[in-house]
Design a protein around this nucleic acid. Structure first.
Lengths: 108, 108
DNA sequence: AATATTATTCGTAATTTTGCGAACAATATT
DNA sequence: AATATTGTTCGCAAAATTACGAATAATATT
């Protein structure tokens, strides 16, 4: 058991990944990427869950930095947070860009 | 509230993302990618948590399909599951490859 | 002023996650 | 046979997640 902590990178990427770690939130992100509309009501309509729950998932995505919301009375409009989206894109891209080592000492 | 369920894709990707949604598990994956060694003990040595907890995280990564383990008595060797790794790579790549819509109706 | 629309917050319940130490299993070594 | 080494599993506790309906807030409309 090392004394060592996790790196900033690991913490950050885990934060993004965790936010993506629920099908409802993946569905929301995909919806916002397609971006036909982005009002709360439209998002809710797409999902098989109660509006209170949708609101909760939106909050988590927002807190993770992947989306943002703004009020357009009486509606609320949600969108991808472009800056953090780009950051996440880069991190995941770099992560999966690593080639898996092929030493014979590895399984398979 | 739609009657509609989540897609297979959404479920699958959320499963991968969830597995990556903890810094300890990100650290494990990075360690296995670097692949200096891949015995349980070496992994445990890198992390600031008890071995029981490491074992638990490894189990989750295994159940999500991202890694695999095999016994090399008296040690246990863990590795990236190449097949699913490739699948995950493709899914995340496709997901982040989508360009974010730029309609003026979107925020920002 | 009363009502309707839209979405968030509150209160609650059930489940899952995270983490640990202790106990256990399985094989090697003495 | 006793001991050491290596990891997993068990039992438990604390915290976080997921989900819902009801209550609330904030503005528009009648």
């Amino acid at each position: 058991m090392a004394n060592k902590n996790y790196t900033e990178e690991q913490e950050r990427m885990a934060r993004f990944a965790k936010a993506m770690g629920h099908p409802a939130r993946m569905a929301i992100l995909e919806f916002l990427l397609r971006q036909e509309t982005c009002f709360f009501g439209d998002i809710h309509e797409e999902l098989p869950i109660a509006k209170a729950t949708v609101s909760q998932h939106l909050k988590e995505l927002k807190e993770a930095g992947l989306i943002q919301g703004e009020i357009e009375t009486p509606k609320v409009k949600y969108c991808i947070n472009r800056e953090n989206w780009e950051l996440a894109r880069k991190m995941f891209s770099a992560f999966f860009g690593q080639s898996v080592c092929k030493k014979e000492s590895c399984c398979g």
